[in-house]
Design a protein around this nucleic acid. Structure first.
Lengths: 151, 151
DNA sequence: ATATTATCTGAAAAATTTTCTGAAACATAC
DNA sequence: GTATGTTTCAGAAAATTTTTCAGATAATAT
């Protein structure tokens, strides 16, 4: 399904999606058209889902990252869905995973500073129904943060 | 520093970096050249750090996400740096944050399945020196996962 | 008011993407 | 072994996009 060239191509596109097909062709020992067709195929099959620009957090005033562990009061189906809907609509929340363990959800929240985080907690997060308890840990430093899956 | 048009442009590029300047120009009520120059400026200033292709985790056999909370045995400077270096080199680790709270680090680990996770733990993670304890929670479902910062 | 700077538009040039044609490589069936 | 179909490839041509350029407009400061 994915051969060596596809995998190499995916690595390159995950690192820099702005490379021209010519540059890619050169690195992969293929013609421009071959690269073009492989990319189209990977897009068609849904292996590549989208192309995005990544921004510098600090430069757009989102330099403060917080991880929120959340427990719901109950685990009825509609409690979960309602919570998930509301949390998804918050654009300070970049990630939300339903997880195993002591807590039900793990959220990655990105704001400007601790002041904005407080405001986020008070005015947005804790106004969501059914939240039992939350435990937040602040990011002291970002050691690694990549979108690159090793294929 | 960033005006309304810049912010709108950044939103669009974070959603889809493959749009042509013509398409962007239309949405922003600008000329193609104006869009072109704004993008170049945002790149030059480092607001836009890179362009990447995002992949479907399942389709590349990375459908299993685990969050690992890690405590070090000590917090000497060189313990931290050594740990951070080693963790950064592991390509199953997409993210690593030094965090406040009970644990020192929070890792996002992505592998194929629980079997591969076990192998990652045994052969890679726990072979790193100075690790005190770890606590892992598995992702049951991915509720939200975006790279888009709201500017 | 004038110079300065930044940002804009529209046209032309350069480069890239996309389409098209046909060849090579490969597997399968007869 | 040969025919057949499929996939992948390369190279040329067409279509589109990016990039450069010249000059206009708007905003700011002296």
């Amino acid at each position: 399904m994915l051969d060596k060239k596809d995998k190499a191509l995916l690595q390159l596109l995950q690192q820099n999606a702005k490379q021209t097909n010519k540059q890619l062709a050169l690195q992969l020992n293929l013609s421009v058209t071959a690269v073009y067709e492989r990319i189209k195929k990977l897009e068609r099959e849904g292996v590549i889902t989208k192309y995005v620009a990544l921004l510098d957090k600090e430069k757009v005033n989102k330099g403060f990252t917080v991880f929120c562990h959340i427990k719901l009061v109950q685990h009825a189906q509609d409690y979960l869905t309602k919570f998930e809907e509301e949390v998804t609509s918050l654009d300070e929340v970049l990630e939300c995973f339903h997880v195993s363990g002591d807590y039900d959800y793990l959220l990655k929240v990105v704001v400007k500073d601790i002041k904005q985080f407080r405001s986020f907690m008070v005015n947005k997060l804790t106004t969501i129904k059914h939240i039992g308890s939350t435990q937040s840990s602040f990011s002291i430093s970002e050691v690694k943060n990549t979108t690159q899956l090793s294929v």
